[in-house]
């Protein structure tokens, strides 16, 4: 195995371990077809409602044609969906976080407002730690003009009432990370 592969495997393993610890479910798949299949399998049992992605990002997910994705035209559509799908920029192995950089309000809402959220991440886009991640956000915000960059680590949670950990307050109750092996197909 080449050194690059060793490194990538190490990062992937740690990422999966940390994301799982933070309460996310990682679906490791091969290619986009694998991603589509895993998502379809998962939502089978999750009740009624459309699977949504924003019009702008539908294309970027690469899933059109593979899944019955509907455009999320406004927040009501998102709130009424069964799940939302959005592409993550990169992952952070140290924390198991997915990083989003979405300027459009709707793009963010899919990740914030849908009851279940599928975050797509290519395994090759995992950086080791927050130190490297900090440099990447600088690039995103200072050079590329990304206004709204977020690290998402596990589902929404609270422990405000008697310190009982409860999942799903305002954000998604379930976070699935669709971790795609293979080349970025775009």
């Amino acid at each position: 195995m080449s050194e690059t592969n060793l490194t990538n495997n190490f990062l992937k393993t740690r990422f999966v371990e940390r994301a799982t610890k933070a309460g996310a479910t990682v679906l490791e798949v091969n290619g986009l077809a694998g991603a589509a299949q895993a998502i379809a399998e998962t939502i089978k049992t999750k009740g009624e409602g459309p699977l949504v992605a924003t019009p702008d990002l539908l294309e970027e997910t690469g899933l059109t044609g593979l899944l019955p994705l509907e455009p999320a035209v406004d927040e009501f559509k998102v709130a009424g969906s069964v799940a939302g799908v959005s592409p993550g920029r990169f992952g952070i192995a140290e924390t198991g976080s997915i990083v989003y950089a979405a300027n459009a309000r709707l793009d963010r809402l899919v990740a914030m407002f849908s009851p279940i959220h599928f975050a797509m991440l290519y395994a090759e886009n995992i950086v080791p730690d927050l130190v490297v991640a900090g440099g990447k956000i600088r690039e995103l915000q200072v050079q590329e003009g990304s206004k709204y960059v977020s690290f998402v680590t596990g589902p929404s949670r609270t422990a405000d009432i008697e310190r009982v950990l409860t999942i799903g307050v305002q954000g998604p109750k379930e976070l699935y990370i669709v971790l795609i092996n293979g080349e970025t197909e775009r």
């Binding site: 459009a104 309000r105 960059v149 977020s150 949670r157």
Partner: peptide, 14 residues
């Protein structure tokens, strides 16, 4: 180790 969400906001986004 980190909270669920950490956000960096650099101005009005839409």
């Amino acid at each position: 180790p980190i909270t669920s969400y950490s956000t960096f906001l650099a101005g009005p986004s839409d």
